[in-house]
Every structure is written in C-alpha cells, then in structure tokens.
Design a protein around this nucleic acid. Structure first.
Ligand SMILES: [Zn+2]
Length: 270
DNA sequence: ACAATTTGACCCCA
DNA sequence: TGGGGTCAAATTGT
C-alpha cells in the first residue's frame, strides 16, 4: 500500500479508471434523450462495472498486464438485439434461462481505426471465417477474464476502408464481481440431480437484467414502438471524448440496418 | 510445460 | 441449402 511498484502500473490504473469515467459519460449521454435502447444502457453499465472491477484488480496485485489504452471510451454506435419477438411461452430445448439468453444475445457495434483494436479486455481468438462478399475474414474472440464469461467480440476489417475495423461486441461480461446476472455455471461433472436444494438462484432476479421485463413493458404499452434502435439524433456537438481520431456518426446504423445502402463513404480518415 | 492461434469440421437457423 | 458462428485438434508461440 505504499508506492506503486512502477509508474506503468499506476498509469495503467489511471487509464482504466479514465475508461470507466468515459463510459459513464457515454451512459449519461444516452440517458438524456430517449435515443437509446435499454440494451445500450445496460451494456454500457455492464462495461463500467467491469472496468472498475479491473481497476481494483490492478490495485490488488499490481499488474502491469492489461491496462486500457490511453484514450478510450470508444465511440459507440449502435446496439442491436435480435427481436425478442414473441415471448414463446414454451421455449423448448434450451439449457439457458431467458435472462442468460438475453445476456448473451445483447450486442453492440463499434467502428474503430486500426489503433484502438485493443480495448482493455483480454480476448482469445476462437475462430475465423471468410465472409461472403467481404474481402477480409472475420475474427471471433472470447473473453478470457473469467471462465464462463459470456462476452465475445468479432472483428472485421472493412472493405471500404481497410484502415478501419468493425468490432461487434456480443454478450455481457459475467467475468467480474458485479455480474449482470448470476450465471448458471456450466457445472458439468457431478450435477446434483435434485436431492440437494440448490440455493443458487436466490439473488437471481434481484440485481438487474430484467431487460426482458423492461422490454416487455415497453412493448405492452404500445407496440408501435419498434425497438428499432434509435434512428434518432445523437448530438455530435457534445462529444468531448476524442473528437479527433474516433469516428462517431449516427449514419452508421442507418447503413448497417439498410442493406439497400451499398456504398457509403463515411468517415474519411484524417 | 503451458497458453494462444490456426483451421477445417461441425452445427444451427433463415 | 449454404452462410455464419462455434468447436476442437493441430500447430505455433512463450
Ligand atoms: Zn468478460
């Protein structure tokens, strides 16, 4: 608890904390208008919690290992969630709870320059696929922080601008101490048949991840609300964060939701 | 020795 | 049926 072992350690910690702050700013930004879906907010919140948890981890055993790159925060663009659609009463053949299902389905798409491919997380590549009509393959990564973490990401270099990548984060981090949802452990091996009452899910719906519930409420009030994610307005003006080298436009989502908009040259590199 | 990537097979769903 | 996501054995990296 005295001196930090190295300046780099302290710097790492500083960066991670800053990252948390920036994420919080984003969350605030998304809070003012109704522009953002619940998923967006929830994802950012999960990211913030994860960030602070990592900061604490850095404090505990002074790791120079995984810090966050100096300017982070990431201009986040859109959130898409598969249509939860009809809440089928009988979800068949699924070893996952509805909550966990949503937790792994939630996704967020970013567009970043070749720098900043390193967010503060630790990922392990588990696949790569050639994508139809894409010049570059798509890489599949999984979070390695905790074992059962649901967070994944896929990275694809853009045809239009090979200096940039489209990063799609999928699934919430369940690897930290503030898990969005108590994840049912893939406790294979000796499963407890039924004899012993498992008290696992006592805090299960306490914390959050009532996304589904929330969404249901929204949907039930008026289904006119497509949860079409925010074609509404961002305010580009107050984006204090790295206005420089990070692109951030509202047009992206239009594009990636409209297949009918083939060539769009957004964001010219400096 | 382990840990991470590579790469084709496999699986799932539109 | 085939395109996209994942698994896992083989390979490479430390
Ligand atoms: Zn994680």
């Amino acid at each position: 608890m005295e001196r930090f072992p190295s300046d780099s350690a302290r710097e790492n910690l500083e960066n991670v904390l800053k990252q948390g702050g920036e994420l919080a700013k984003q969350l605030q930004l998304h809070l003012e208008p109704q522009s953002s879906s619940q998923e967006t907010l929830f994802y950012l919140l999960n990211e913030i919690l994860n960030t602070y948890d990592r900061a604490l981890a850095l404090l505990k055993h002074g790791g120079t290992g995984g810090g966050a790159p100096p300017g982070f925060g990431g201009a986040m663009v859109a959130v898409m969630s598969d249509s939860p659609g009809s809440p089928l009463t009988g979800s068949p053949h699924s070893s996952h709870s509805d909550q966990e299902d949503e937790a792994r389905r939630i996704s967020l798409e970013k567009r970043v320059p070749s720098s900043q491919l390193d967010d503060g997380h630790s990922w392990r590549k588990y696949g790569q696929k050639d994508i139809l009509r894409s010049n570059y393959p798509r890489g599949y990564y999984r979070c390695t922080n905790g074992k059962g973490c649901l967070a994944r990401k896929q990275v694809q270099r853009l045809d239009e601008d090979p200096t940039a990548y489209e990063v799609t984060y999928k699934g919430l981090h369940t690897c930290h101490n503030n898990p969005p949802i108590p994840v049912i452990h893939p406790q294979n091996e000796l499963n407890k048949p039924l004899s012993h009452g498992n008290q696992i899910n006592q805090s299960q719906q306490e914390p959050f991840l009532n996304i589904q519930t929330s969404l249901k409420i929204i949907g039930s009030s008026s289904d006119t609300q497509d949860h079409t994610p925010s074609s509404s307005n961002f305010n580009p003006e107050n984006n204090p964060i790295f206005s420089d080298d990070h692109l951030l436009c509202e047009d992206y989502l239009l594009d990636f939701m409209n297949p009918a908009a083939p060539e769009l040259n957004f964001f010219n590199d400096y």
